[in-house]
Design a protein around this nucleic acid. Structure first.
Ligand code: FES
Ligand code: FES
Lengths: 132, 132
DNA sequence: TTATATACGATAAATTTTGTCGTATATAAT
DNA sequence: ATTATATACGACAAAATTTATCGTATATAA
């Protein structure tokens, strides 16, 4: 329970890999996929998403690839997670109010409190801390 | 991402409901299921599991039901979650080492650090805080 | 004896996650 | 120009997990 997704895991692995290289070097999806045993197409899509989000920069064509574009210190884990996977919380009724239990729900407030704790925790951690 | 399961949600709703009653009163699965719009059989199984774990006490027969048996202050959310759903962590490779990425993995250590933070956070919160 | 409650393994449905396919575009090298 | 290799991305498929139901047994108050 309270797992992150493979997508996020792959994204973190990729970021850390790029971080370990010279900042001018490009890294292809294939290089990372091969080295860490990750499905290439899935990783590629995740990298593309990060490129759209401005976290990394994409260069097309042969000898192309990706490199880190943003200052990882300035991106919190919370923001990173939410960019890749949407709202971060223990329960969806925290965000959308379609919950079936919502009329009589007796744990909404306490759960929100815990949610806030968790979100606050991930707000205080930056991507840099993982990929350094 | 980082969601708890319905099972845990239902368990918390049930606990809070029982907590709001006199400590000698019994509450049936049906009563809770009806009031909060929860599938009865699923809730029943969850209550049974909590009974096995000693969190609540079951009384069989007509006019039977459940009541809180443990001191909720003494049960951390971490322990509660893990009783119901098993190991608590952002990634399974934290516990079992069958992970495909494990040989070359470059984020194992940093992820473990975050995991420890998260587990520590839930260790400090008790069931009482949710059901009070 | 009946009605109602818990107990629980097995199974099914639904949802979410994870992975693949096909096609288009960009660009360096030949 | 042509080729080879890389990103871009929507649609689809497979797999895994979560959620819910079924069937049957047992307990016990009325
Ligand atoms: S509002 Fe959704 S479970 Fe409480
Ligand atoms: S050890 Fe499993 S992803 Fe790193």
């Amino acid at each position: 329970m309270l797992n992150i997704t493979r997508k996020v895991e792959y994204a973190l692995i990729a970021l850390r890999h790029m971080q370990s290289k010279n900042n001018t070097d490009l890294t292809s999806a294939k290089e990372i996929a091969t080295k860490y045993g990750i499905p290439q197409q899935l990783l590629a899509k995740t990298l593309q998403q990060m490129a759209r989000d401005g976290i990394i920069k994409a260069v097309q064509g042969p000898a192309g690839g990706y490199k880190i574009a943003a200052n990882l210190k300035s991106i919190s884990l919370k923001d990173f997670f939410e960019k890749l996977e949407g709202p971060l919380g223990m329960m969806d009724c925290y965000f959308d109010s379609e919950c079936l239990q919502i009329t009589n729900c007796n744990i909404r407030i306490p759960i929100q409190r815990i949610n806030d704790n968790m979100r606050s925790m991930f707000s205080k951690m930056t991507l840099q801390e993982i990929t350094q």
